[in-house]
Write a protein that binds this DNA or RNA. Structure first.
Lengths: 308, 308
DNA sequence: TAAAAATACTCCATAGGTATTTTAT
DNA sequence: ATAAAATACCTATGGAGTATTTTTA
């Protein structure tokens, strides 16, 4: 087994053709350099330099050995530089999984901003349902997840992150679209488009209405859609109303393509959770992204409260 | 500065995904491996493996670091193997300088045989006059020289190696070509082709004849030639006789293209010397070639004495 | 004889070990 | 409860130093 220190000394002597000056160059004393050289020569079983008090001349063996020593020292330096860069969070891969709402509506703009701050990073985004994403986190397929529910899993850690408001919406041609506010009873009577039973959004709605004494089966559900996007399109097409993530319809509300109508005394909120494996060391980029998410969530919350 | 031992440990842990088994693989104890790993992680400023009692999982940092560690360890192994091969005399470059006669007539067949024994070696042969070759040895342009004279130079070491016999030759059409033997006086009377004054061959002839009481200017020199080859061709062309290295005309004598004629009571011998720098470590190939030359010289000498 | 390398020696850091505790499944 | 990693602690090798001697141009 070679010794990197000895290689460094070897290269210094090679370059300076002089042991004392080589010693200065590597911040050692002359006897120490002589010692290292001797040890290396003994290990290799051959003399590397012919030394007199006037000249230090490399032998053929040294010429054979040099390229290896050089390469190893270069790699040594490169490795340390790369690791420093990696820890400086300049580079690396952000592996993140997200359930549908965060993956489609919440993360894209955030990832865009993060990528502007750290242009060299790569992003791997997996979008699936909450259960699958948590599994991906458990199996280390992704480093972190951003999901819509807190599952029971002892291996992973959940942290509340963003909150999402669900709003009641109707198309511009709809009879209710001129109203600012309606009663809960009025809403329940409306033909409703929803996500399928079991989806995070659907569960959130049922729980919120349940708290107000409205049974799940008392809603007038006319269509169940497989995605939030499909629900949005259906509402725009005038098929009915829906309760949907405010983030998913933000643009439509601003342009007037959809109308949101407040339900008296009811606000449906949903929390998204950051998930990661308890015993896993997160890469610097990921840690950095988590801080970024926390501060984003914080500023969004402040924005929301100042609006009210 | 990285530590090769730590890299070895890192790679073992990477491969085994288990610290205790990695320890066995590198013949260390588990705490020692843990220690190395910890030290490496501290130096790099990041965790490399997430360890529990059931699993050892590499972090992203480890994945970044791995290729460097692998390459360095590979180079380490290659370097040691290469040096072993070099010392096993399998490889290397034989840098040899030779003056004209040894370079043209003595070395080529010897180098051919040596190359057959060690096919991987490279040969660098410089042919020039004795003075220049000795200078090349002094300046380390070549490791050894084979020259026709022992010059005064305190830095280099001369060792008698081959001896060369000079013979009196005549073309087949020459009047003397039928004679086995002639008197010295007869020879001196002949029109002679020689190398220029100052050449090693010329000096050898003059010294030998001088010992027999023949002055240098009493010879009947008709042409002076710049090379042994030119002298040989001139004799074959019938311009005159010559005294020439037996090695240079060996083939011609065997084919009858030239005749050698003994001069009664006179034998002109010349010694070639192996030269090398006193304080220089010779490469294994060169050392090996020196032994090869010595044994060749020895067997040639035995052959010569057994012939007489 | 002067400048550089080699040697002798001292000291302390640390690589490696053994014994034990902690941790996580 | 068990298997593996971490920790604590000890020892001895050897890396790095200072002081001195040897070498050679």
């Amino acid at each position: 087994m070679l010794d990197i220190k000895q290689l460094q000394v070897f290269l210094a002597v090679w370059e300076h053709r002089n042991i004392s000056r080589a010693a200065q160059a590597v911040y050692l004393t002359q006897p120490t350099v002589s010692g290292h050289l001797k040890a290396l020569e003994e290990q290799l079983g051959t003399r590397l330099f012919d030394r007199t008090s006037k000249k230090v001349a490399p032998t053929q063996a040294a010429r054979v050995f040099y390229p290896y020593a050089k390469q190893i020292m270069d790699l040594n330096r490169q490795a340390l530089e790369e690791m420093k860069g990696f820890l400086g969070e300049e580079t690396g891969t952000l592996e993140i999984g997200a359930s549908n709402i965060p993956g489609q509506y919440l993360l894209p703009p955030l990832l865009g901003r993060f990528k502007k701050i750290r242009p060299k990073i790569e992003i791997k985004l997996e979008i699936s349902d909450t259960r699958k994403i948590v599994e991906s986190v458990e199996n280390s397929m992704v480093e972190i997840g951003l999901v819509g529910a807190k599952l029971k899993s002892p291996k992973v850690h959940f942290e509340e992150c963003f909150s999402d408001e669900l709003v009641f919406i109707a198309g511009p041609a709809h009879q209710l679209s001129r109203r600012q506010e309606i009663e809960l009873d009025e809403m329940v009577a409306q033909p409703l488009i929803t996500r399928e039973g079991g989806s995070g959004t659907r569960l959130t709605i049922e729980r919120a209405l349940g708290e107000k004494g409205v049974a799940a089966d008392s809603m007038n559900i006319v269509v169940e859609m497989g995605s939030t996007e499909a629900v949005r399109q259906a509402v725009k097409a005038g098929i009915g109303c829906a309760i949907i993530s405010k983030r998913a319809v933000k643009d439509d509300l601003e342009c007037g393509l959809l109308q949101s109508i407040k339900i008296k005394g009811v606000s449906i909120n949903r929390t998204f959770y950051l998930v990661w494996l308890k015993n896993r060391t997160l890469s610097p980029v990921t840690k950095s992204f988590i801080s970024f998410l926390r501060s984003s969530a914080q500023s969004q919350k402040q924005l929301a409260t100042s609006k009210n």
